[in-house]
Design a protein around this nucleic acid. Structure first.
Length: 158
DNA sequence: GCCAACGTTGGC
DNA sequence: GCCAACGTTGGC
């Protein structure tokens, strides 16, 4: 399977790119996704070696803040089994897990954010879910063309 | 903080 | 299986 590209959203008050940067080996699990469409991608499609845009949502300036790679393909989200976790789901069990997560490794924190406003203005990104109104999907596929456009933009930074 | 858009739940 | 009610998301 060829390498694929994704965009992961997180609220920085919950988990930010700086939190990931502090982790050993800058690697952490991406838990708490509780949406079936996103779950299916985590379980079936997102593989080790794929690349990920780290996106901050629900903040003053939303946008892409980092580039990550997938360090581990989809496996059951253990937070769903933990009654003390805010992601606890009694309907998920180790025998029959409902939710999945992957591990991500931060490759590069961008020197500056590529804001949503920027993304909307960049040619070639018109079809990205994140630039479309009302898109709440927290895990989104990114095409190779879109990825290239964003990489070109990030390389222009100093 | 507001509120429109969205996804999920549950009664019927 | 429909759909109203509800809770959540996320830009502004």
């Amino acid at each position: 399977m060829a390498k694929r590209y994704w965009l992961f959203k997180s609220e920085p008050t919950t988990y930010s790119v700086d939190d990931l940067a502090k982790e050993p080996d800058q690697t952490d699990y991406w838990d708490g996704v509780r949406n079936y469409q996103a779950r299916n991608m985590l379980r079936d499609d997102i593989k080790k070696g794929d690349e990920v845009l780290f996106y901050h949502s629900r903040t003053k300036v939303p946008g892409i803040v980092g580039i990550c790679s997938v360090a581990r393909s989809g496996y059951p989200d253990t937070a769903a089994f933990d009654p003390d976790s805010k992601y606890f789901d009694p309907k998920s069990s180790p025998d029959n897990p409902r939710w999945y997560m992957v591990d991500v490794k931060l490759k590069k924190k961008l020197p500056e954010i590529i804001s949503l406003t920027d993304l909307k203005a960049m040619p070639g990104l018109e079809n990205m879910a994140v630039t479309r109104k009302g898109s709440r999907l927290s895990i989104q596929p990114v095409t190779q063309e879109e990825w290239k456009v964003i990489m070109t933009r990030s390389k222009g930074m100093k």
